[in-house]
Design a protein around this nucleic acid. Structure first.
Ligand SMILES: [Zn+2]
Ligand SMILES: [Zn+2]
Ligand SMILES: [Zn+2]
Ligand SMILES: [Zn+2]
Lengths: 166, 166
DNA sequence: TGCTACAGTGTTATTGTATAACATTGCCAT
DNA sequence: ATGGCAATGTTATACAATAACACTGTAGCA
């Protein structure tokens, strides 16, 4: 069973049903093992976020929930997001005020996230070399890191190609 | 004339008047050389931002301007910020929706910004090693970078010390 | 001198993002 | 059952950013 090393962007062409199922399954396992509850709303929000690899805004999620007749209010969604963030199931993309599923849930990693300006698809890496170098610089400054946020904006392979062609 | 190598956080104890003057002078030179106008409002906003090394929110700046009797409306400040961003005079701190003066204005750099959770002071580095490694990873993904955003949150030396002591 | 073009600013209104504060519900343990 | 607590519901508000359009001043040019 060898993972395709995904040298390219996820949106290219991959079995996203699998992607999504895997994420949900992992989430359930993680919550169970940590003794926290993946309630209906939390699970539903996570599912909605995993509908794609594009970051979802909170109010976008609200609308999708409303479309199912549920019609919750902002705090409901923000609380679900807060939970998912706290347990490492999603990342917040600060440059977009939006949220995307974590591809390394439960793996204790520092993510670098690539975001396409055009199609909004994202992919997540966890390169130790980047993380270590930043940590080293912090040490030199006597700065105590709580969290690293690395967001890289630009064009994904597919969109870059179209851009060239045109 | 040798710059103190600032191995520590800026807020520690430094001649901030100098800091601020230098920044304004640089801004004037840059604008002049680029043939763009550092108008009164733009200049005033930049000065307000440089009052400290803590990121300032747009509405915070609005209030400070109002305190001087000017009382502008949001678009005025946002337009000034847009200008300052476009010309590399300030950085936006996405994780805080706030703006801080750029310490490397005119130097063509990719910044990594350290932000203290407790006192909000920031410091900016431009380590090529970090930048290059990220660029390399992007190349492997066939991703075309437009912009890198690196924000590191945690405790500055001073605050970390107090934290230990307590 | 007067005209034009345009960058800059003013003004009003609205959209978008996030949280405060407090009430209610449902679950579990004693 | 009942007290405690996590989760959710509800209302209102704070905070951040932009849209759309009007006005002004200046710089180039006839
Ligand atoms: Zn997928
Ligand atoms: Zn794309
Ligand atoms: Zn300073
Ligand atoms: Zn501090």
């Amino acid at each position: 069973m060898m993972k395709p090393v995904a040298p390219s962007f996820p949106a290219s062409s991959h079995d996203h049903r699998h992607c999504m199922h895997e994420a949900l399954r992992t989430a359930e396992h993680l919550c169970a093992s940590q003794g926290v509850r993946l309630t209906a709303i939390r699970r539903r929000v996570l599912e909605l976020i995993w509908r794609s690899h594009r970051p979802s805004g909170a109010y976008e999620l609200l609308e999708q929930l409303a479309a199912e007749g549920h019609k919750p209010s902002p705090p409901t969604v923000y609380r679900a997001l807060e939970f998912l963030l706290a347990h490492g199931l999603v990342h917040k993309i600060n440059s977009r005020n939006a949220y995307v599923g974590c591809s390394h849930a439960g793996e204790s990693h520092v993510a670098q996230i690539f975001i396409c300006d055009r199609c909004s698809n994202t992919t997540e890496q966890a390169d130790d070399a980047v993380e270590r170098r930043i940590r080293r610089n912090a040490r030199d400054l006597h700065f105590h890191i709580r969290e690293q946020t690395v967001e890289i904006a630009g064009l994904c392979p597919r969109c870059a190609e179209q851009h060239d062609g045109a």
